[in-house]
Amino acid sequence: MICAAAVMSACKKDTIKSLYTSTPGVYFDWSDSTGTDASRVDSLVFSFALTPDRLTDTALLPVRISGDRMSKDRYFKLALVDTATTAISGLHFKALETQYTMPADSGMVHVPVYLYANDTALHSKQVRIRIQLVPTSDFTVTDSSYNVAKIIFSNMLTKPTWWDMWGQLGEYSRVKYELFILTTGVTVMTPPADFNNQPAMMYALSTFTSFLQDPFSFVRDHPALDFTLEVTDGGAYNFYKTYSPEKKYLLSPDASGIGYHFHDENGNPI
């Protein structure tokens, strides 16, 4: 019995020792708001279309360690899962770094993945990036259900169900919806019968109508919105945010010689 107890004690010590000396791991920490895994997700999904003044964005991937923190920088790696990635490096996103740093005394870090919306094909399709953690000398990756992250994004802006409820908006087009969001800051309109929100909705409509009727006065009267009108050849103008000159909207003189109009995605006047 004494020998057995000694053996059991030695085994227990070896087990505890192995727990604390084994290489720590890293995993994607997609915790939900309740702190449980009941509704755990492993992806980020969004559209550039709801921020039409931006052609770049950053997805943050939460990477957490399993094990003790250390008072030195450590390194982990990410790799694309090529068979499950439809986005193109350099066109839709910036290539991944060769390695990433887990700073000293840290237990978690958010890895930035830089996304681009320049490809016009994103107006009609989604693309996907699938990324997995891979082992390094500093970290292992043991749980396959926590080592993969997905980023799904597009620049699609489809006609919302509420558009026709507000006849003042007229015929729908993607460009008109983008201009509406840019000038009003509103992405969703509540139904006219919603009397609590009706004043705010009417103000948004009034603001957008004023903009379309006289973009020059709108830009002058709303300097805080950072819009500019840049003259081009033929008496036309480019309308855009001063901090986002890559995304421009053409404003052309009317054929009648009175007033100006924007163009939708098919070249038709708005």
Rank of each mutant, 00 (worst) to 15 (best):
F46E: 05
G25V: 09
K125D: 05
F262T: 00
D57T: 15
R174Y: 02
S210T: 03
L212W: 00
A104V: 03
V219M: 05
T36P: 09
L80S: 00
P52Y: 03
L61T: 09
S217V: 05
T34W: 10
S43F: 14
G234D: 02
S47T: 10
H123D: 08
N197M: 11
K72V: 12
I258Q: 13
N238F: 06
K247C: 05
K94A: 13
E97L: 15
T136P: 10
T15E: 14
D32L: 04
N118S: 14
Q213F: 05
L19R: 13
D214R: 06
G235S: 07
F195E: 10
P215R: 04
W163K: 08
S210P: 03
V63M: 07
V81C: 14
S47G: 06
A6P: 00
V113H: 07
M70T: 11
V63D: 07
S22F: 10
A204G: 04
Y172P: 00
N266Y: 03
I88P: 08
F139E: 09
L44Q: 15
L133W: 13
T21E: 13
Y243S: 12
F211N: 01
I65N: 10
L78H: 06
L78N: 08
V63G: 11
E97S: 15
W162S: 02
F28N: 03
I129H: 13
A224M: 13
